[in-house]
Write a protein that binds this DNA or RNA. Structure first.
Length: 736
DNA sequence: GTAGGGTTAG
């Protein structure tokens, strides 16, 4: 923005002729250069105004300087270093300037500096006043320093400023925010100052420690409740997960004729989102539209979040696309909405659009987008994001970001990178350890996972139920039956964690695979809860391995009851029949499936090349490079045959679709993805693929050979775990 | 004679 320099009637204000003490206030207040300040939207414009102020001589006045500093230190378009520069250029800053500087610093990420200025102010002979203490107390709260806070409280009393309403509330708030609720209450009780603001400060203290009932009692005492008091209560109920109370309070508020504001609506909508109350959300929306607030970006963001969390992605997307100006939060809620509903490709697409729109992603963006990368196996994009975070968030102490990176790398097949991130972390949360242990487990690196577990307990971290899912699944992926048994009983006895379905699932899997069916069934019978499909499914899988047809049939019965719509059960049972050559039964099941109109979930494999995720279905012919892919597939089959590979047809039912006749075995989705990988990546580089189902035995054997023939490491993620194919063998040692 | 306290979304 260029300044309208000529239109400013500088000559009428010959201020530079005036002495150091400020000219009459009225004259300054209406000065055109200063009124320009309020219109500033960037630091560049501010600097222009500053030079203007120097030209007019206004910079000799403390008033103008205080206004400049205020803009730099407090406004969202400000620049704190510039404010400090200005401040240090002043010989004897007055009280207002000191207060403004302290105010700016109290808002910054370095509240310690505000305290430093407060001390310097007193040293320079200027007394703090009732404007100083709210900022100073806010800084104490931010630093979470109880000692400094109490000292400042002493100074407030010495100066007799505790009777000022603003200072009083700031004291309550300081104590409430530093977990000294008893002191907050004491300050409140001792004073006759009881307006809605001081009540609300105390109420939020109670809310922060989860005392909703005490908060409610205080709320009922407030002589005149204002909108903020209502908002605080509604937010408290939402935070406490008492969504019904929150929504009831909102209705009560409207009945009490208190007009909701932006905060109210954002909070209420967040409550609807978290509790999945679509109907209430719609009602709130109609209220918003009726009151003309449908264009407020913060409210629309909250609406988008509400709709996507309640499963109405289309409505959410319509609202999102209808926005003229989208902020980070808008983008983040929409990306998060897609991730929430497992629409990972849409989430990725939106993230790319966000970057193209030059919107700077935030930590929340990464927490939504990295799980999408993980789910799709989009390693290159994940790596790019990691580099971006390293560059822009170098000093970020956000542990959850690093934890999410560990998870992303593990699930994208790069367990080494996951370990690097884990090792580089200075501070770790329980979740970081859990992510690393589960990562090692899904890669079949049981020994390392168990090692990490003991390291974790040595470092005094307390394992939780999720840790043990990782530990037990490590045992189950490696077939470590005895160790699995030991950890299972240690979990119950040493850590007092009662096993849930996932823990039992691992144990049933271990026992079943070892052929200990009696023990597995006994375990299931002794469970406190009803076994779910995963437990029976795991047992059914074991029946296939051990060719236990009759047991398989009875297990399948449980599954038919539990998951009548799951075609996978039929497929597995038919594979059991096929395994013992009972082809009549195989055919019977196929007819059964057809009659029920059920189709097996199509196998789908994906591979990321140059940050684009390519998906393949069985016998897929839609890829633009389809011909090259099938040429490569033919070459692969020829070479496999030459190497003496004999296809195992015992799992043909996996190709129940029409294509099964054309020998679709060699056109399984994972083979298409591998063929595409072979033609589209450099020789010798690793090929990574992701499959939605378990890899079949035939493809497993074929891939082992492919890794040798083409000299490629192939890392495949299936529904359960990772397989690292290299030099003709697989990391799972054919146990999966 | 500038300014200041309590509520808000991912």
């Amino acid at each position: 923005m260029a300044l309208p320099s000529t239109s400013v009637p500088v000559s009428t204000f010959p201020l530079h002729l005036l002495p150091a003490s400020d000219p009459p206030y009225k004259l300054l207040q209406n000065h055109p250069s200063l009124s320009l300040l309020s219109k500033c939207k960037s630091i560049q414009t501010l600097k222009q105004v500053h030079s203007h102020i120097i030209k007019t001589g206004l910079h000799h006045t403390q008033f103008a300087l205080s206004k400049l500093i205020e803009f730099c230190a407090v406004s969202p378009f400000g620049d704190l270093p510039y404010a400090l520069l200005l401040f240090h250029s002043i010989d004897e800053p007055n009280q207002v300037i000191w207060n403004t500087m302290i105010r700016g610093l109290s808002l910054s990420s370095t509240p310690e500096l505000a305290m430093e200025f407060y001390v310097k102010m007193i040293w320079s002979g200027i007394l703090p006043n009732s404007y100083t203490f709210p900022f100073v107390l806010k800084s104490c709260a931010k630093m979470d320093s109880t000692q400094v806070g109490e000292q400042v409280h002493g100074q407030v009393l010495k100066l007799g400023l505790d009777s000022d309403a603003f200072v009083h509330t700031s004291l309550i708030n300081m104590y409430a925010q530093t977990s000294q609720l008893r002191n907050a209450r004491l300050v409140f009780d001792k004073s006759p100052l009881r307006d809605a603001v001081s009540y609300t400060a105390l109420i939020t203290g109670y809310i922060s420690i989860g005392y909703m009932e005490s908060a409610r009692e205080l709320f009922d005492e407030i002589p005149v409740r204002d909108v903020v008091s209502w908002n605080a209560m509604i937010a408290g109920y939402v935070q406490a997960g008492q969504y019904e109370d929150a929504l009831a309070f909102f209705k009560e508020m409207i009945e009490a004729n208190v007009v909701p504001n932006e905060s109210t609506l954002v909070t209420v909508l967040s409550g609807c989102a978290q509790s999945g109350s679509l109907e209430m959300g719609k009602w709130v929306r109609s209220w918003i539209d009726d009151h003309g607030l449908g264009f407020n970006i913060h409210i629309v963001n909250a609406l988008i979040d509400m709709y996507s969390k309640c499963g109405e992605l289309d409505t959410a997307s319509d609202l999102f696309e209808g926005l003229e100006q989208r902020d980070v939060i808008s983008w983040n809620v929409m990306i998060g909405g897609y991730t929430h509903m497992s629409c990972h490709k849409e989430a990725l697409g939106l993230f790319q659009r966000m970057l193209q729109s030059n919107i700077e992603p935030s930590d929340v963006t990464f927490l939504s987008i990295l799980p999408a990368c993980a789910s799709l196996g989009a390693l290159d994009l994940g790596k790019w994001i990691h580099a971006y975070i390293d560059k822009n968030f170098q000093y970020s102490d956000n542990i959850s970001i690093w934890t999410t990176l560990i998870d992303m790398y593990s699930k994208c097949g790069s367990i080494e990178a996951a370990q690097q991130v884990f090792n580089s972390m200075k501070h770790r949360s329980l979740a970081s350890w859990n992510a690393m242990i589960s990562g090692l487990a899904m890669h079949g690196l049981a020994e390392k996972a168990l090692e990490l577990f003991s390291r974790m307990t040595n470092e005094r971290y307390k394992p939780d139920n999720i840790t043990f899912v990782g530990v037990l699944s490590a045992c189950s992926h490696a077939g470590l039956l005895d160790l699995g048994r030991q950890y299972f009983s240690s979990m119950v006895q040493d850590y007092a964690i009662s096993p849930d379905l996932q823990h039992y699932g691992c144990m049933v899997n271990l026992l079943g695979r070892a052929g200990l069916f009696d023990e597995a069934e006994a375990l299931i019978q002794n469970m406190e809860m009803k076994p779910d499909g995963a437990i029976w499914g795991s047992l059914l899988g074991a029946c296939r391995v051990h060719k236990r047809v009759e047991l398989g049939e009875s297990v399948a019965k449980h599954l038919f009851e539990l998951e009548p719509e799951n075609p996978g059960v039929y497929v597995l049972l038919s594979n059991i029949y096929a395994g013992v050559g009972r082809w009549d039964d195989v055919a019977r099941i196929r007819t059964l499936l057809n009659n029920k109109g059920m189709k097996k979930v199509p196998g789908c494999s994906s591979i990321e090349v140059d940050r684009v995720v390519h998906e393949f279905l069985v016998s897929d012919k839609v890829h633009p490079r389809c011909k090259e892919i099938y040429d490569m597939l033919n070459e692969v089959d020829t070479l496999l045959e030459k190497a003496g590979f004999v296809p195992d047809t015992s799992e043909v039912l996996q190709d129940m679709d029409e294509e099964w006749k054309e020998g679709a075995l060699s056109h399984h989705s994972e083979k298409l993805a591998i063929a595409f990988g072979l033609i589209s990546t450099k020789p010798g580089t690793t090929i990574r693929i992701v499959k939605n189902l378990r890899v079949c035995g035939n493809c497993h054997s074929a891939t082992k050979l492919i890794s040798k023939i083409f000299n490629r490491e192939i890392i495949a993620r299936d529904r359960n775990r990772f397989h690292h194919f290299k030099d003709g063998s697989c990391s799972c040692n054919d146990y999966w």
